Computed example of a mutant assay.
Amino acid sequence: MKVSLNTVAKMDVGTISTRCPHCGKEGTFERPINDVYDLSSGPQGHILGIRRCPNKICRGHLFFVMKSQKWDIFDTYPPIKIDFNSDGIPDRIRSTFEEALTCHSNKCYISSAIMIRRTLEEICHDRGASGNNLKQKIASLRDIVILPEELLDAADDLRLLGNDAAHIESNEFSQISDSEVNISIILTKEIIKAIYQYKNLLSELRNLKRNS
């Protein structure tokens, strides 16, 4: 983003409420140093600034760009990823899905769609689903794991999204949007939770009852 030095002015937009890209916690971000001002490129331009995470364990710095007309953040560094609880997730599945989240946060939507598809492949491999391709493996998964029919249908739709993204011959690969990948990530999170995390949550609940 190119900003003319002649239009830059010092200002203060105060604290900013957002989620920390370092520790993942929500918070009201404060100034890192008292004499570091925000910069504005004018009433129709952008505001640039830096804040610090209020979490005393983290204290990570966040660089932001804000639209001065709407006073909302539209870009940050590091990028803020969609939150994801990785407890109880096998390493290969966790690292693959986290790469999909990283791609999405950096606005690399085609790459994110491909990694979502790869996440499904890793889930099928981990659960021993068989087949010559991912479509057959997802069909096999229906007999191995207990999932709502809607999530199993969603897995097949996610397979198609990632497949379109991976092939340049597809007319759809260049049209994958933020909202399309965002809902795909939400569905993948639900599939992961249902397969790997609900059982652990139930075990924790039963342990609490036994110890109470």
Rank of each mutant, 00 (worst) to 15 (best):
D126S: 07
Y196T: 03
V13A: 09
F64R: 08
L62G: 10
I82T: 12
S17L: 04
I116F: 01
T96C: 11
D143G: 02
D156G: 03
D153C: 01
P148T: 08
D35E: 11
I33N: 10
L201G: 00
N211V: 11
P90N: 06
I185N: 07
N34P: 00
I47A: 08
N85W: 07
L134H: 05
P21H: 03
T96D: 11
P32G: 07
C58V: 01
I123P: 10
D178G: 00
R92V: 00
I183D: 03
L202G: 01
I89L: 04
Q197M: 05
V65H: 10
L101G: 05
E180P: 00
M115F: 13
K81P: 01
E204P: 00
K209N: 14
I89G: 01
F97Y: 13
N106G: 06
P78Y: 05
D178V: 00
V36Y: 09
T15W: 02
I57M: 03
S170I: 08
I195R: 03
L151R: 01
T188L: 13
M11G: 04
N207D: 14
S111G: 14
Q69E: 15
N6K: 14
C124S: 03
H46Q: 13
L48Q: 05
M115V: 00
W71C: 09
E121Q: 14
E122C: 09
K209M: 14
D12V: 03
A129W: 07
L161T: 10
D38S: 08
E98Q: 15
P54C: 08
K135M: 11
E98T: 10
P79E: 09
I138Y: 02
E169G: 11
L205G: 00
K189I: 13
I57C: 00
A139P: 02
I16H: 07
L147A: 11
A155V: 06
S130K: 15
L39E: 12
S86D: 15
N182G: 01
R118W: 00
T28H: 07
I176V: 09
L202K: 14
I16L: 15
M1N: 10
V145E: 11
L161P: 02
G162M: 04
T7Y: 12
K56E: 10
N200W: 03
I146N: 14
R19L: 08
F97P: 06
V36E: 12
A100N: 04
S68Y: 05
A194R: 14
N6F: 09
A9R: 15
